[in-house]
């Protein structure tokens, strides 16, 4: 149980603001505004990572909280959430996202690894648009991009990364060290591809022809195979 509905913590590059997912949205945002206003000068200029927990924050709600922070000189940079709705809203607003939905497993608080990936699947985040330069998606689960990942965009996942489109930006699968993680793309020409602690780059372009490929780790190095 949390003791306050808005918690504000300093993190290395700004503020981490945690909003209670169970309280009324209006009440929480009003509380946030008044908390900031109490120390307006102290908070001004900060970059904010907003953790909305499991609340399915809509795009208009996120827009209004972004404006609320804006008016106080704070910048909303990143949204951390377990809700696909909130993540979609953040992606639409060009914010960095950190998807926590892998943590929402049944009986999560038992401390038992309660779900088996073979039976229930593993949770992840689906992004149904092209990631343009400067956009990042972070997830504790898998990431599926329905669209391209352009150069300058970045995807980081603890699990696998599937790109139903052209992968030309940076991608990191198995970011917590899982060497079984894979990266799939319909056209695999990433700027840089990482799996766990390994890094590789695409070979220089020689008459490259787009085909579906899978990158995985074998014998301690990243290899790319044609998908079939």
């Amino acid at each position: 149980m949390r003791d306050q509905m808005v918690s504000i913590k300093g993190i290395n590059d700004g503020l981490h603001i945690d909003l209670d997912p169970d309280q009324e949205w209006n009440v929480v945002t009003a509380e946030l505004a008044s908390r900031i206003d109490q120390q307006a000068a102290f908070y001004a200029g900060a970059k904010v990572t907003l953790d909305v927990g499991s609340r399915p924050v809509r795009r208009d709600e996120l827009t209004s909280i972004k404006a609320l922070l804006d008016r106080r000189g704070l910048t909303l940079a990143c949204v951390q959430s377990e809700s696909q709705t909130a993540l979609d809203a953040a992606v639409a607003l060009d914010l960095r996202i950190i998807a926590l939905n892998a943590a929402v497993t049944p009986n999560n608080n038992d401390g038992v690894g309660a779900f088996s990936s073979e039976e229930d699947g593993t949770l992840g985040v689906l992004v149904r648009r092209t990631l343009r330069s400067g956009r990042t998606v972070h997830s504790r689960g898998h990431v599926v991009i329905y669209g391209d990942v352009n150069p300058g965009a970045e995807v980081v996942a603890s699990g696998d990364v599937i790109v139903w489109g052209r992968l030309r930006g940076n991608v990191h699968a198995g970011a917590d060290g899982d060497t079984n993680a894979i990266v799939c793309a319909l056209d695999m020409t990433p700027t840089q591809l990482r799996i766990a602690h390994m890094i590789s780059t695409s070979p220089p372009d020689k008459r490259h022809k787009a085909k579906p490929e899978v990158a995985l780790v074998r014998d301690g190095r990243i290899i790319v195979e044609t998908w079939q």
């Binding site: 607003l93 060009d94 343009r132 330069s133 400067g134 956009r135 352009n150 150069p151 300058g152």
Partner: peptide
């Protein structure tokens, strides 16, 4: 072109 891509993303937002 890279910067244009970034701008288009921001415009969409």
């Amino acid at each position: 072109v890279r910067d244009a891509d970034r701008i288009i993303g921001l415009l969409e937002a």
